[in-house]
C-alpha cells in the first residue's frame, strides 16, 4: 500500500484545514473498509487520511436534542452519527423500534467483521450504486447532515448521489450524520437483497419498500440499489401502490420498477439479469410489506 500520513483531529476546524491542504489528496477515514482496499489496489491515492472518529457527535446514535431538525416534532428524528458502525445500527433496539428497514439494510451489508468496522457515513460517502443503506435511507426520506469550511447544510439522500462512486460534497465537506424522520405508527419497511451468495456479497439488486399510513390508505416509497448509476427511487411504482396494493397493483408496481432502472453488466450479473430480477425482488419486498400490514 502506498504510504500516506494519518491525522486524527479533535475538532471540525482542524479537520477542515487538513481536508483542504493545498495540493494534497486528503481522504476522510471512518471504517476504512473502502479506504484500505481502494488504496491498496491503487484506485485511491491519498497523501493523507483524516480520521473523523474523534470529532464531536460522529459516534452518536440518538433521538433527542437535535439541531438542526427536519421539521418534525422535537425528539422525533433519529440521528445516526456518520461514524456509527453498521453492526451498531443492525443491533440497535432504538433503530429497530421505528426505523427497522435501516437495521435490515445494515445487517445485509458485508460480513460480520466488515459490519463491525464499516460506518453509515462511509457507506453513503463512497456512493456505490449498490450501497445497502441507500435504498433504506431513500424510503425513510432521510437527510445527510454536512459540515464544511463554508458552513453546514442538510442534503436529502435523494439529492446526495451524483453518479457511480460520486457524491455532491465539495472539497473539505464532511458527512457528520444522518437525520431520519420518525415514521408514523403502523408504518412498515422491508429491505430485500439479491446477491450471489446469501450473505457477504454486494447486491445484484437491492430493494427497499416502505408503506406509511396515510388518510384512509397508505403512502408508499420504493427505492432500488445496484440497478442505476446511483441508488434511485421509483416514483412510478410508488404512484401505482398509492392507489392500492392488491395482487394486480403489486405486479404493476414491480413492472414499473423495471422501467426505472438502467443497470450495467459486471462480474456479479448481466444488465439483463439485473433488470429482470428488479421485478422479482421488488414484488417480493412489496409482498413482505403487505404481509405485515395485513397479518
Amino acid at each position: 500500500m502506498q504510504p500516506f500520513e494519518y491525522y486524527k483531529p479533535k475538532d471540525f476546524d482542524e479537520a477542515f484545514k487538513l481536508l483542504t491542504l493545498p495540493g494534497k489528496m486528503m481522504y476522510p477515514l471512518a471504517g476504512a473498509t473502502d479506504l484500505i482496499p481502494h488504496t491498496r489496489d491503487g484506485a485511491w491515492k491519498p497523501d493523507g487520511v483524516v480520521d473523523i472518529k474523534g470529532l464531536p457527535g460522529l459516534r452518536d446514535l440518538k433521538v433527542e436534542g437535535l439541531e438542526p431538525c427536519c421539521g418534525c416534532a422535537p425528539g422525533e428524528c433519529l440521528y445516526v452519527g456518520a461514524a456509527v458502525r453498521m453492526n451498531e445500527i443492525a443491533h440497535s433496539a432504538l433503530v429497530r423500534s421505528h426505523w427497522d428497514v435501516l437495521a435490515q439494510a445494515a445487517a445485509a451489508m458485508g460480513n460480520e467483521q466488515v459490519r463491525n468496522r464499516a460506518t453509515l457515513g462511509g457507506n453513503l460517502g463512497t456512493a456505490s450504486p449498490a450501497a445497502d443503506s441507500a435504498p433504506a435511507l431513500l424510503v425513510l426520506e432521510a437527510s445527510v447532515l454536512v459540515k464544511g469550511p463554508e458552513g453546514d447544510r442538510s442534503i436529502p439522500v435523494e439529492k446526495f448521489f451524483a453518479g457511480p462512486k460520486r457524491n455532491v460534497l465539495k472539497k473539505g465537506e464532511l458527512i457528520v450524520g444522518i437525520l431520519i424522520p420518525k415514521p408514523p405508527v403502523g408504518s412498515v419497511g422491508v429491505y430485500e437483497k439479491l446477491s450471489r451468495r446469501k450473505a457477504g456479497d454486494l447486491a445484484i439488486v437491492g430493494v427497499a419498500v416502505m408503506a406509511y399510513p396515510h388518510a384512509s390508505g397508505h403512502r408508499w416509497r420504493v427505492a432500488l440499489g445496484a440497478v442505476a448509476p446511483t441508488p434511485i427511487r421509483s416514483p412510478q411504482a410508488e404512484v401505482i401502490l398509492n392507489a392500492g396494493h392488491d395482487a394486480a397493483h403489486i405486479d404493476e408496481a414491480a413492472a414499473a420498477a423495471y422501467g426505472c432502472c438502467c443497470p450495467i453488466d459486471d462480474v456479479r450479473a448481466s444488465a439483463a439479469y439485473r433488470q429482470m430480477m428488479v421485478v422479482n425482488i421488488t414484488r417480493r419486498a412489496i409482498r413482505a410489506v403487505v404481509q405485515q400490514l395485513h397479518p
Binding site: G31, A32, T33, K53, Q113
Partner: peptide
C-alpha cells in the same frame, strides 16, 4: 480476524495507528 475491543474485525482492514 482478531477480536478488537470485543468484536471480530479483519486486522487487514484496520490501520495500526487506529
Amino acid at each position: 480476524t482478531v477480536i478488537m475491543n470485543g468484536v471480530a474485525v479483519n486486522s487487514c482492514q484496520v490501520l495500526a495507528v487506529e
